[in-house]
Design a protein around this nucleic acid. Structure first.
Lengths: 141, 141
DNA sequence: ACATAAAGTGCAACAATGTTGCGTTTATCG
DNA sequence: CGATAAACGCAACATTGTTGCACTTTATGT
């Protein structure tokens, strides 16, 4: 796949610069079907880059609707690529996520929509998160 | 309310010892209708106790089905009291939670049940979490 | 009441995640 | 090419959570 071109366009479309680090980061996200944390990325990058750079890139990507938070299970925030039509904050790409108890990967369940909330109107709901856990497709074999 | 007696019974029923620290901790949970984190508790306790002690008490309470994790939003794990009939791990008291974007408190929505998951059987689901966010009843006034 | 075992507490030290400030480098656009 | 804004790297720090070890307190049986 020619992700290089795709990534360049993606960055450009959001007014971000196409740097080697950010290109490699997005390539990593495209190469995995599960979510990645900052430390996952640091570990997978070819050259050893500063953690701060990764954190700042992730924040920027989230703000621009390129990535969304897939889970934050105490071992850090994991991000995944947003769908095609996800705008800047607030994100609208609302689907469920799955966290594996064995390998601790987080998967986006794109086809599982987050259920509508039915709740006392003392609370104003603006966000919903729906997260399943158990054993994932890989560990299940 | 005579929570003192209640708390003693609760601890005893789980084979835990009734110490001043743990009694005060549980009293704190009974006095608040939102979830508390380890640092919340350290701040609210009358005497300055070691963080480690609080962490270990929280873990113990969770293991014995006295507390459950209400949220873990990056600023730490918040716990809340379990319902009457919650057994030891795994917890079965499954309800939704609400996190306020303004005051950052977490509320248990005891009457909002967690929706059933409808998901590919490549994944084995054993846990579900359903968390709403927005503005809470206090901040909404 | 007393001894004992188990549970609970405190201290020190540590690991991991995430942030901020600041100076330098790099990409992009005219 | 030159200017500007974004991106990067380093140092330093805050917070959350853990572990090992020694000591204290609670509950239990006799």
């Amino acid at each position: 796949m020619d992700n290089k071109k795709l990534i360049g366009d993606l960055l450009h479309a959001h007014g971000l610069k196409k740097t080697p680090i950010r290109t490699e980061m997005l390539a990593l996200f495209m190469d995995h079907d599960f979510a990645l944390s900052a430390s996952d990325i640091v570990a997978k990058m070819t050259a050893g880059h500063d953690r701060v750079t990764i954190y700042r890139a992730l924040s920027s990507f989230e703000k621009h609707g390129i990535l969304h938070r897939a889970s934050e299970d105490g071992q850090g925030i994991k991000y995944a690529l947003c769908g095609q039509h996800c705008p800047d904050e607030p994100h609208t790409d609302k689907h469920a996520h799955f966290i594996c108890d064995e390998c601790h990967q987080t998967y986006c369940l794109e086809d599982v929509k987050v259920p509508k909330a039915n709740i006392s109107n003392e609370f104003s709901v603006t966000g919903v998160s729906y997260t399943l856990s158990g054993i994932c497709k890989q560990c299940n074999r």
